[in-house]
Computed example of a mutant assay.
Amino acid sequence: MLDFITWTADPAIFSIFSREIRWYGLFFAIGFLIGYQIEDKIFKHDKAPEGWVDKIFIYTIIATVIGARLGHCLFYGWDYYSQHPIEILKIWEGGLASHGGAIGIIIAILIYSKKVTHKNPLWAFDRLVIPTALVGALIRMGNLMNHEIYGHPTHLPWGFRFIENITAWRQGMEPIFSAPSHPTQIYEALCYFIIFLLLMYMYWKKNAGQRQGLIFGVFLVGVFFSRFCIEFLKNNQEEFEENMILNMGQLLSIPFVIFGIYLIIRALKQPIDTGAIIYKKH
């Protein structure tokens, strides 16, 4: 039996008028479509006014794309993008950071809560993060298809040999394979999917939506602590991280984990909010 997996997936599914349709974009879109359906059921269960779910969907998509792009440019490539600001707009060339996306969503939900729900933002966060965990899992599978964000060499039997010269290989050159490496994209995807199942269980079976901030807190701790741990196995994304004890992904994860722990403790100390699922339509 082989002691490694040679990964030769093409990042593109097909092309339309010279424009590639990529697995990454497809997984991203599928995640949002499924996420919308889940969110719609949650909002209907809570008897929220019509239109709230459509608006949170729009706010979230815009915030995710803008936040993830700016996060990549600011956290991982500021030396370059500060000198070439127009390049920030070229999102189709790649470069998204999940921490930036998370910050963008937080800002968007604060605005959404003020303008739409007129409720504590934790109400929206508790409901939004449930499908968000699933979207995160699908995005990491997109990273797998792109041969990117993988880990250190490993002797484990599930090590993947990724194509390092993916662009040149797609132009007809012979592939240059990495050493068998940790498929950290799969590790993260599995963690996020388990978190998604946990949050669904908490909301539908344990009525955790009545404890303001509890689901959001579990999401933050689960996702970003998983990310923090897996980063120890992952190759650094930028050269400046080589001399750091903790890389940028880990440093950015710590505040989210701390805030998540605070929300969990706070939620468990607060009385149950029985009004969280009772609304009258406007």
Rank of each mutant, 00 (worst) to 15 (best):
V223A: 03
G71N: 08
F57W: 12
H282R: 13
I5R: 06
F224V: 00
V135C: 12
P131M: 06
H282D: 14
E20K: 12
D3W: 07
K119Q: 14
I62E: 07
P153H: 09
M173R: 02
T132L: 12
P49L: 07
E174I: 00
I111L: 15
L268T: 11
G25F: 01
F125G: 06
L199E: 01
P255Q: 10
G213T: 08
T8A: 12
L138R: 09
F225L: 15
Y187L: 06
Q210N: 08
Y36T: 01
A9W: 15
D273I: 10
I58P: 08
R170V: 00
F224N: 00
A208M: 06
L110E: 14
G172T: 04
F256N: 01
V53S: 12
K119G: 07
G101N: 05
R161L: 04
S98Y: 07
G217C: 10
F240K: 14
E39L: 14
N143M: 01
P180Y: 06
F17K: 13
Q210W: 05
K234L: 08
V221G: 03
V223M: 01
D54G: 09
H155Q: 14
T274C: 05
K114T: 04
H118I: 02
W123A: 07
F216T: 05
V257A: 00
H182T: 05
V223Q: 05
I176E: 06
K119Y: 07
L198H: 01
K41I: 07
A68T: 03
F28C: 00
